[in-house]
Design a binder for these strands. Sequence first.
DNA 1: TATTGTTATACTCTATAACTATA
DNA 2: TATAGTTATAGAGTATAACAATA
Lengths: 149, 149
Amino acid sequence: MAAMTTAAQRITTAELMEAVAGVSSAFWIDFAAAAARHGLSATQGKALGAVLEPVPMRALAERLGCDASNVTGIVDRLESLGLATREAAAADRRVKIVTITPTGAEVLQAIRDDMSRAHRALESLDGEQRAALLAMCAQLLPLLKGEPA
Amino acid sequence: MAAMTTAAQRITTAELMEAVAGVSSAFWIDFAAAAARHGLSATQGKALGAVLEPVPMRALAERLGCDASNVTGIVDRLESLGLATREAAAADRRVKIVTITPTGAEVLQAIRDDMSRAHRALESLDGEQRAALLAMCAQLLPLLKGEPA
DNA sequence: TATTGTTATACTCTATAACTATA
DNA sequence: TATAGTTATAGAGTATAACAATA
């Protein structure tokens, strides 16, 4: 057990980066394929998942990790597909709030249900592994987002 | 402890999907930002990481999760930047092998070193957590890629 | 003045379909 | 005939810079 711990501490950050990169890449490839089967691009699908709660355009850009100017076009397309709506905020009329439509929520759920590889992968985890994964993600996420802690 | 295990088993696949999606998204946003600081797009950076070993165009498309026709342009740009080379395979002259250049390897390393958020996140893990994360990724990756097991 | 969202621009990424060279 | 890579095309994503409306 002491030997195992010693060995574990030899795992470098570079190795972890590669492992996380592999999983992250495969996850998004699965997501993009599922979105495509439902007629959406990966970005459109990701945007849909980011507006389950109403969100200002600016905040949506932040969530997507892109410039605010892109969001105009992305939301234009979602709106023309009837998957999201956009309306001025009452408090500050410069701000526009994006909201998912019932149809949009259905499509998003269908995409998520259609991620067969991700489902197979995650359903292979037992209860302890699930708890460990969730705790790991909760620890990493704020740091990956650059939040204080 | 029995209570903890019971609680852990209540974690749904949907919750895990959201957690993994969040971490994956934040990881790639950090990667894209680091690549941009070195003058590359996210796709170019990802492609560079996929040709550390010489790889045929077709296999590169597979790794990037995109159509083979895209790879022509992606490698064109890497080649014009002096970061990768492309040459016909001796065994089958239809096949073209993409290889990273020494400069390309340097740029890739610089990008990885520049992922400050990912580094902070992963360096927050102790030895046991590192081993757990690596094992988790090793279990998930083949399933996410759709490999038999 | 500062901020939100939009537009204009140029470039990259993307899939589809048709093409070539090789097998 | 089948496969690897390319080209042509059209649409979508991307950052930059300049702009209008609102604060």
